[in-house]
Design a binder for these strands. Structure first.
Lengths: 186, 186
DNA sequence: TGCACCATGTAATTAGTTACATGATTAC
DNA sequence: GTAATCATGTAACTAATTACATGGTGCA
């Protein structure tokens, strides 16, 4: 109902994080990077204007918290009841399947025009990123295992993390194979 | 060198397809859908303006081909030598890692706020899309197997397709598991 | 002295989608 | 007759990034 102009997923990423606890714009960005980075991303240039919009729409409240003197005031945003409602209503409309855009694969598809060596480097970099993401997620997995089994988020977080580990294992394996194939070409 | 404003991958998707053979804007869109859809996407609203820009920069040439009378003329675009050079130079700058945006996972991450049943439907839809993509790619795999083994593109296309099959197998498996877990929650 | 981090935000730009507009042909 | 496909494009809009601007704190 609440005629939100149009469901922008960024809006809900923010609302969802604020539903956990109040945060500043800076915190939100950090949180996205630390906990959502394997499936989500946001930039300051998107977060700050969006916070203002959410505030105008009454979905979040702001409080300027003075910190240790001299430091800039921290704007802390809290989700309102209207925001809670909006968040829950978001789930009613199914997610739009994202149109994929994998530049590395585009290059590989056009491999015929690539100077020698380039694709091997591309794939290698891809593998390295996949491996790094994988080790990071393995750590997260351990952290989750230590959480209280009754935590209401645990099931969901485990699913999200296992998505990541399975995905990056596959990407790592594919990259290794692809590197080998490309090397054969000389 | 050729000071291209900034490397826009869409530009190279188009240039790469035109390097294979001359095509119309309509053809390009179809080609992207039929052959690149598991890792790339383009819309008319992006392709047509981009074709004009590429033409202005001398990277492609146009010829209005009259067809059966009454039909609109088909604008056929051909890559120029400058375009060929540009395409090859593109490979010099490494691909920018795409920032991920998976709305289904965002919803799952915030699963605590979801009304019952919603996430199961989300994941189910995700699995169905993965399965569909997988069967499509299996067919493509068969088609590739029948191609001339000496075709210069074959190695690259096989790698791209195997990326897809391995990816979607993983996504399918994960979805099946996730559906089961979510069902347990009631 | 300099770097990393804390902290907020705006401006300019690009990327990219969706909706609109038009109209013929072909196959059912 | 009606739906799908062929075919081209523009206009309006939204999403989102990058670069810019500012300045303090704490640590090595």
């Amino acid at each position: 109902m609440s005629n939100s102009a149009r469901a922008n997923p960024t809006e809900f990423a923010i609302l969802g994080l604020l539903a956990e606890r109040p945060r500043s714009g800076y915190d939100i960005k950090k949180e996205v990077e630390e906990r959502l980075s394997h499936f989500w991303s946001e930039s300051y240039g998107h977060i700050y204007p969006m916070l203002r919009r959410l505030h105008q729409r009454g979905l979040i409240a702001v409080s300027a918290v003075e910190q240790t003197p001299g430091r800039p005031a921290r704007n802390t945003y809290t989700i309102t009841d209207a925001g809670q409602t909006e968040l829950r209503e978001w789930f009613a409309t199914p997610p739009s399947p994202s149109r994929p855009r994998n530049e590395m694969l585009l290059r590989l598809f056009m491999g015929r025009y690539a100077p020698p060596g380039v694709l091997q480097r591309d794939v290698q970099a891809y593998r390295e990123r996949s491996s790094a993401a994988l080790s990071r997620l393995r750590e997260v997995e351990k952290e989750l295992a230590e959480l209280d089994a009754a935590a209401p988020d645990l099931v969901y977080w485990k699913l999200v993390v296992s998505f990541g580990t399975q995905l990056f294992e596959t990407l790592e394996a594919w990259s290794t194979m692809a590197e080998r194939e490309l090397k054969k070409l000389g």
